[in-house]
Amino acid sequence: MLINHPLLGPRDAAEFTYMGDASLIHRPDWQASDAAAQFADYGYLRDNPAGLHRELWFHEGGDRSWLVVTRDTTTHEITQVELARDVARREGRST
């Protein structure tokens, strides 16, 4: 697989480390009254869809940026690549 890095262009997926579902950007609030239940879901439960999947790839063998890759798990086709930083900002998780 080739991942079209937003800054570096097409890179071999072997340079990256897969870090799971991009919903992990949304860490629960530790002060919430049901924080334990929220963290159990966050830590252990996954949608695991057959089809489009937004996922985190860490460019460990490159510029060490985190990406959000949208990929079809039934064909491995990658349709969108964004910097995780931009996604987190857009979704209100970072400044």
């Binding site: 997926a13 897969y18 695991n48 999947h53 996922e55 990929r71 798990t73 039934t74 491995h76």
Partner: peptide, 10 residues
């Protein structure tokens, strides 16, 4: 090492 339902790898 990545989510897949494709029954083929890389």
């Amino acid at each position: 090492g990545y989510n897949s339902y494709a029954q083929r790898g890389n």
